[in-house]
Computed example of a mutant assay.
Amino acid sequence: MKKIFLTLLTLVSLSHAENIYATFNVAAQKSANLAFTASGIVQKVHVDIGSVVKENQILASLDNADIKAMLQKTKIVLKFASRELERQKKIKNLIDASKYDKVLSNYENAKASVAYQQALYEKTILKAPFEGIIYDKEIEIGDAVSGMMLKTVFKIQSLHARKLILEFDQKYHHIVKVGQTFEYKVDGDDKTYTGVISKVYPYANFDNRKIKAEVKAKDFTVGLFGDGYILVDGK
């Protein structure tokens, strides 16, 4: 009798080991808080909440007429410095080395000035870091922004790509692995979905003694939650 009881207990333990319960929240695969790193007055705002944007698409820009003029000026200086360098290269062996070095130095300085002004100019233009959707906006034409006090003006998240942030009991830390199947339901949806664990966090939360893992998903609304089971032997 004792032997039968132990056998049943072993089977129950194996059954539980194959189905590890986990809860989850839906998060965007990519998300970012965007801010200007330059100071100035907002001149143009090209998008709004709900706008779908491409990578490197311009979202907003500051009044940059002065920086643009300075950039153009440095480009002109570089243009003539480049011409002079090409002329001196042709007679390099016939002129004093110090004179040639001075011409070369003028060219390199002009090139550096263009790069510097170009960098300043680009800081006045805010672009999307990846394809996604704008889900928050805190900027209007005429607003003043400061590069010294960064303020989030847009929030962007990936358009379709999502990740489920799972939480499961820490006692399974040695069992749950990348590649295992996760069967789950989203709250309010009767359909059963399946995914694959793509990441297991290498630590347990001190407060609730839970370990996190991630499963890639698509098109769920960010912020939803649900639960399911990790199939340890069902890769």
Rank of each mutant, 00 (worst) to 15 (best):
E183T: 08
I41W: 02
V45C: 09
Q180N: 14
V232Y: 04
A60Y: 02
A213S: 13
L164Q: 08
I156H: 09
T37F: 01
I76A: 15
K127E: 08
A97T: 10
G234L: 03
S198Q: 10
N19A: 09
S82D: 15
Q117L: 02
Q117N: 09
I141T: 10
I230E: 06
Q118A: 10
V232N: 05
E140N: 13
F154G: 07
N93E: 14
I139M: 09
T194E: 13
S31G: 06
K137V: 06
T74N: 12
D189P: 07
A65Y: 08
I175W: 07
T192P: 06
V145D: 14
Y121T: 09
I67S: 11
T37N: 07
L11N: 10
F220T: 12
L11R: 04
I41C: 01
E122F: 00
L14E: 12
A97W: 01
L62Y: 04
L166M: 11
P129E: 11
D189Q: 11
E138T: 08
V103Q: 12
G40K: 05
I156A: 08
I211D: 10
E122P: 03
V52C: 01
D227T: 09
F220I: 13
N208L: 03
F154E: 09
L166S: 13
V26I: 15
K75G: 15
T124R: 02
L150G: 04
Y116N: 07
M148Q: 12
G50Y: 05
L8E: 14
E18S: 03
F206Y: 06
A38Q: 10
K89S: 07
Y184L: 02
V196N: 13
G40Y: 02
H173E: 14
E138G: 04
I156K: 07
G226K: 01
M148F: 05
L94C: 00
K191H: 14
E55W: 01
P129W: 06
I95H: 04
K44W: 00
Y203K: 12
F206L: 08
F5T: 13
Q117M: 07
F36L: 03
A32T: 09
G132A: 03
Y107T: 06
E183W: 01
K163A: 02
A161E: 13
F206P: 13
E131A: 13
D96F: 02
F154W: 08
F225P: 03
K73Y: 07
I211G: 12
K3C: 07
A161I: 00
I230G: 05
A161T: 10
G50I: 04
L6W: 04
I20N: 09
S82P: 01
H173C: 01
G50L: 05
Y184F: 15
V42E: 12
A97R: 11
N64I: 05
L62F: 04
E138S: 12
K127G: 10
P129I: 06
Q29G: 12
G179N: 06
I165M: 09
I197L: 06
A35L: 01
L159M: 06
N33Q: 15
T23Y: 04
K127W: 01
L166C: 10
N208I: 06
D101F: 00
Q118D: 12
I125H: 03
L224K: 12
S31I: 01
N109K: 15
L8R: 11
L120Y: 08
L59Q: 12
I41Y: 04
N106L: 05
